[in-house]
Design a protein around this nucleic acid. Structure first.
Length: 1019
RNA sequence: GGGCCAUUAGCUCAGUUGGUUAGAGCGCAGUCCUGAUAAGACUGAGGUCUCUGGUUCGAGUCCAGAAUGGCCCA
């Protein structure tokens, strides 16, 4: 006996009991360990940060992360899955700062780095319970008991080892580079972080500034001459040390009332100067070389208490290419020059570009190439230094004051506003400022070819990411600025000598402990700041004291090192690279990780081992709300995932995530869509399951009984479809395409429910337990059991429920969970393509026939003498001839008359309704004989009695006595069709007469006749 | 400014290499079926396949350009 299954189901409730079953029987661990001898399938978990509650996009990712490994386990692969937590980085610090009400790094230092980091350590798992609960509830199987945690000493030690490997190969250097700097967080942002914070339509000043040429042009000495330049960042003007022109472009000198202005002729009109007279033309290269076209600084740094320096190159081991700035002496008569470069745009501005080497990447490069001065009157908080009229102000606030100042000095030609895209800090939304700063870099450009070549070996889903977004990113690779001037992160393991300035990189704890003259060591060891800052040792070069540099590293480096750091390689597990645990077969994250984790994984792996560390990656699109808008707290449209799961169940959410749309597309999410999935798919499957169990129990069906099966055509058909389905699902999952696999399952369940079960109903109902009935049971049983296995990776709860009841209760020796079974193997010999096509033909004709009946207004319950059918080919005629019985049943007709394709059936018989689709036509006669009418009435009576049985709460198998009272015609029909009516309604007898008390009665109108019907249950 | 993706019914999505009249589910209106009943079947309304050009005997599909949205880069 199977456990009775009601057609009414509460999925969340079923799932809860499955969860406790898994827990009780330790199913996840066993599913992994049972495959211990199989080949490894390696999954890498991209570690989330647990300092915020998980969102629906996390659920999406975890569902996709789960489905493939579950499939692999069932295919016999040994597939351990290790959870991971990302614990370092600015997000964590910002959260703690918010809690403490801090607004700057000074607040943190005052509070104490030790206390601050202790709070970070605590904060980072603030939502761990929620994360674990969500992970468990949705059935994402991953080892949460032994996760890798990026802040653990052992994890950090591996990260140090990795950095040391790169250091030894000269791949780490400290350089000045212009980096996007967040003035509030006080740190540089990596380019992948910058990418997170662009905002459109930002309003900024758009100003034209006049730079006075020192002596005027030799040919035009009568009036002062100005170079006209354009900028949107007035605050960078004090840092101006050159003006750049395009060497091949034409420049013009135009005459104003009491001045000459120089600008590119191409931008002459755009600067609204077309009314002015052009007095001279010259090439940009001439402008740059003409003696005397030096200009006066807008702000001579020496007058405002600001330093001026120039670059010089130094070479040291490990710090290749480092540059130092050499301080210059004050010069009251300072002038700057015009340079010719290749970056001057003729699209906007004046063709003369303001160059401030401290504040732009190209500016900085131009400064190096042209020995320009370097002036940097802005501190790390974005405050103007020196004693300008606008000193002490935040740069953006200084802008209007600078304009006022220039205007009062007659140097502002024009001032407007512009709307453009500008980057902001992705966490705190402060505008980013481009600064030349000393930062530690990883020279990823040195392995660019290997990065690109490695990408060739990776399978991307969707494929366009490979040579699109990710490939482009690799092609445009720049060195990785990976140091952060922050507190809560993996400390950069570089020590510098206080005296001689030489560096040492430490690659492990033992190495550190072995350093001569080590002091400051405390146990238990904590590799974080400030404790690691207190560790000093003796300089091997000069014997003075080595102190750690202050920086920590980008947390993307942490997570990107997880392939080795989760194993504490090479300090433990040193066979990792050769024993199958590296690289990953599968990873999966959202598309924003292209420049995040996907990149840091790939970069670190390539730098260390010169090979990629993942083979297949599913890259998920982002989730939008029901209206297609981005979910955000501000909009208040964030979907709380647990609420949806509690209401509809995890399987519904999983199935929606997996099948609703291609994984790489953006997708809309709403509770409504999840509930649709439940109705359309889960409930339909459940109904088939419930139907099966109900009748199997009535008939005491025992799975596998009955020896060789006498399969009907219908059985052979669904078994053929089933085996085709197995092959399709297997192939799609093998190809990392759960959506396709899921949709195939959906259409199979639809066929199973709406054709196989519907067509087979009478076989289950009939009283005698013959071979045909047994075959039907065995066939449906096989379909359901196979479905439970096919569905196990997708909807593990529902799959388990089916399996437990269908298999667990019948085969005590079977594995005690569907997740411990093998994935079904398709028996291709059972796939009958011809039969599939034949059945499609029957479906087609039935559908047309129903349409014709519908149009003729004749219920299917009313038998008809025949239908006329016209087909596409003679071959199909033969097929349909064979499958006639099915059509007879489906359409409730006594005969099917098949006409050759060449005969127009509309003229062959009068009084018909015809429905045609393509080459297929079905015609039904509208005339009814008295015999057919009587039979129709009998069926109508049966129908009414069935409904009465149900509404009076009888069980399906209850025997009854039926009473009837009506006119002569009714009595005649009741007598003529007595056997039929008794059989259909399980009536022991049909009693003509007034029902006595205790009988459920109803009066019915059947066409022109009145009848009183009564039913009474027999004990 | 550049790149990638998307745009098909009111909504969510299919549409293989170009080939009759562009499909499904949901929703809506109606009919039917029902011993799966909080399902199911059928019919109907609902489409300038975002737009403009081009290639072709033939374009939702291929090419070019544009628009809108999303993501990314600068």
């Amino acid at each position: 006996m199977f456990h009775p299954v009601s057609s009414k189901v509460n999925f969340p409730q079923v799932e809860e009991s499955i969860l406790s079953l898994w827990k009780k029987h330790n199913v996840f661990e066993r599913s992994v360990n049972a495959r211990g001898s199989g080949s490894r399938f390696v999954f890498y978990e991209g570690p989330p940060t647990a300092n915020g509650s998980p969102g629906i996009h996390h659920v999406l990712a975890r569902v996709f992360k789960d489905v493939i490994p579950r499939y692999r386990v069932m295919k016999g692969y040994y597939t351990p899955r290790i959870a991971g937590w990302d614990t370092h980085g600015l997000p964590v610090e910002l959260e703690v700062e918010r809690e403490l009400g801090f607004s700057s790094k000074a607040d943190i230092e005052e509070y104490g780095i030790d206390r601050f980091n202790a709070r970070c350590r605590q904060s980072v798992f603030g939502y761990l319970k929620q994360w674990e609960a969500m992970t468990e509830r949705i059935g994402f199987w991953v080892d949460l008991k032994h996760p890798y945690i990026t802040m653990d000493n052992r994890y950090i030690e591996t990260v140090w080892w990795a950095i040391k490997q790169m250091w030894d190969r000269g791949l780490i250097y400290q350089g000045y580079k212009v980096t996007p700097h967040c003035p509030r967080c006080g740190t540089s942002l990596s380019s992948h972080e910058v990418a997170l914070g662009y905002q459109d339509n930002v309003e900024d000043p758009s100003i034209y500034v006049k730079f006075k040429v020192v002596k005027g042009l030799p040919s035009l000495p009568d009036k002062p001459t100005y170079l006209l330049a354009w900028t949107t960042t007035p605050w960078t003007l004090p840092g101006n040390t050159a003006l750049a022109v395009a060497p091949d472009a034409e420049y013009v000198v135009v005459a104003g009332d009491d001045e000459y202005l120089i600008l590119a002729s191409a931008l002459f009109k755009q600067a609204k100067l077309e009314g002015c007279e052009i007095v001279e033309r010259m090439k940009g290269s001439d402008l740059a070389t003409i003696t005397g076209v030096n200009y006066e600084p807008l702000y001579n740094p020496h007058k405002y208490g600001v330093e001026r320096s120039r670059f010089e190159t130094v070479n040291e081991t490990g710090v290749l290419g480092a540059r130092r700035l050499k301080l210059q002496k004050p010069n009251e008569k300072l002038t700057y020059k015009v340079i010719a470069t290749d970056f001057v745009s003729m699209e906007e501005g004046t063709g003369i570009v303001h160059v401030a080497p401290a504040y732009g990447e190209v500016d900085y490069q131009a400064g190096q190439d042209n020995d320009l001065d370097f002036v940097h009157p802005v501190d790390l908080q974005g405050i103007m230094t020196g004693n300008y009229p606008f000193s002490g102000r935040f740069v953006k606030d200084a802008d209007p004051l600078i304009l006022d100042d220039l205007k009062s000095r007659g140097l502002l030609f024009r001032s407007e506003k512009i709307r453009h895209t500008y980057p902001f800090c992705w966490r705190c939304e402060a505008p980013l400022l481009y600064y030349a700063k000393q930062t530690w870099y990883i020279r990823t450009t040195a392995v660019k070819e290997a990065l690109v070549a490695g990408n060739d070996e990776i399978n991307w889903y969707p494929e366009h990411i490979k040579y699109g977004r990710f490939g482009d990113w690799l092609q445009n690779n720049v060195d990785w600025a990976f140091s952060r001037e922050r507190y809560w992160g993996t400390p950069l393991p570089v020590w510098q000598c206080e005296a001689c300035g030489s560096y040492d990189c430490v690659g492990g704890v033992d190495e550190l402990k072995g350093k001569a003259g080590l002091s400051g060591l405390k146990e238990p060891l904590d590799l974080h700041r400030p404790f690691v800052d207190e560790l000093t040792f003796t300089c091997s070069q000069c014997g003075a004291k080595m102190k750690r540099v202050p920086e920590v590293i980008d947390c993307w480096f942490d997570s990107g090192a997880m392939p080795i750091a989760q194993w504490h390689y090479p300090f433990e597990n040193d066979t990792l690279l050769g024993d199958g645990r590296f690289p990953a077969d599968y990873i999966c994250e959202a598309v924003d990780q292209t420049r995040g984790w996907f990149y840091s994984l790939h970069a670190i792996s390539t730098l260390l081992f010169n090979r990629p560390c993942f083979r297949n990656v599913i890259c998920l699109g982002h989730i939008l709300d029901a209206k297609g808008e981005k979910m955000s707290k501000a909009r208040g449209n964030v979907v709380e995932p647990m609420a949806v799961i509690d209401k509809h169940g995890a399987d519904a959410v999983r199935w929606y995530c997996l099948t609703a749309s291609p994984p790489g597309n953006v997708r809309r999410f709403s509770e409504r869509l999840v509930s649709e999935v439940t109705r359309r798919f889960l409930l339909m499957l459940w109904n088939v399951y419930s139907f099966f169990v109900t009748y199997a129990n009535i008939d005491h069906f025992v799975p596998g009984s009955g020896g060789a099966l006498e399969e009907s055509e219908l059985d052979r058909w669904i078994i053929s479809e089933l085996n085709q389905l197995i092959a399709d699902v297997d192939g799609a999952l093998e190809a990392y395409n759960p959506m396709e696999a899921g949709r195939k399952i959906e259409s199979f369940v639809n066929e199973l429910s709406n054709w196989y079960v519907r067509r087979s109903r009478r076989r289950f109902w009939k009283s005698e337990s013959d071979a045909d009935k047994l075959s039907a049971y065995n066939t449906l049983y096989q379909c359901l059991v196979t479905l439970s296995k096919l569905l196990a990776p997708f909807t593990p709860f529902l799959a388990e429920e089916l399996y437990q009841n269908l298999v667990g209760s019948a085969f005590p020796e079977a594995p005690d969970s569907v997740h411990l079974t093998d994935f079904p193997v398709a028996d291709v010999t059972k796939v009958d393509k011809q039969l599939a096509a034949d059945t499609r033909l029957v479906m087609k004709i039935s559908s047309l026939g129903r349409a014709a009946r519908s149009q003729a207004g004749i219920k299917v319950r009313q038998p008809l003498a025949h239908v006329l059918v016209s087909l596409a080919s003679n071959q199909e005629q033969e097929i349909l001839e064979r499958l006639k019985p099915q059509i007879l049943e489906e359409l409730n007709v006594k005969d099917v008359i098949i006409r050759p394709p060449t005969v127009d059936i509309s003229v062959s018989v009068p009084a018909v309704v015809i429905v045609t689709e393509g080459d297929y036509s079905v015609a039904v006669p509208t005339e009814l004989s008295p015999e057919l009418r009587a039979e129709g009435l009998a069926r109508e009576i049966v129908h009414r009695l069935q409904t009465m049985r149900r509404s009076s709460g009888f069980d399906i198998a209850d025997r009854i006595v039926t009473y009837y009272q009506g006119e002569a015609y009714i009595k005649q029909v009741m007598e003529d069709f007595a056997d039929y009516i008794k059989q259909e309604t399980l009536s022991r007898e049909l009693v003509d007469g007034v029902p006595h008390e205790g009988v459920f009665t109803e009066s019915h109108r059947l066409g022109d006749y009145e009848v009183l019907l009564g039913v009474k249950r027999l004990e």
